[in-house]
Amino acid sequence: MKKEFEWFDKPENIWKLKVYGLLTLLVTVAAELMGTGDSTHQWDKIPGFYAMFGFISCVVLIVLSKFLGKWWLKKGEEYYDE
């Protein structure tokens, strides 16, 4: 039997992905410092503004939907059949 492609199951590869991923994050923030002049809005002047904005937005969305789901909206799959 042909051996399956299992690259993503190996812990050492996941470790590599994490390292490269974090490096990419750093690069995108560092790259912003190289760009000049294009800051028409006040918030553009804050370094890494969009990085923070993206992260915080997602945390808020995740937590909000978690709470909505847990306390109100999530029901068992048979809910409508009962």
Binding site: G21, T24, L25, T28, V29, E32, G48, Y50, A51, M52, F53, G54, F55, S57, C58, V59, I62
Partner: peptide
């Protein structure tokens, strides 16, 4: 900016 926004969403 788009890359920052998206990649840090991925981090979250």
């Amino acid at each position: 900016r788009m890359l920052q926004l998206l990649l840090f969403s991925g981090l979250a």
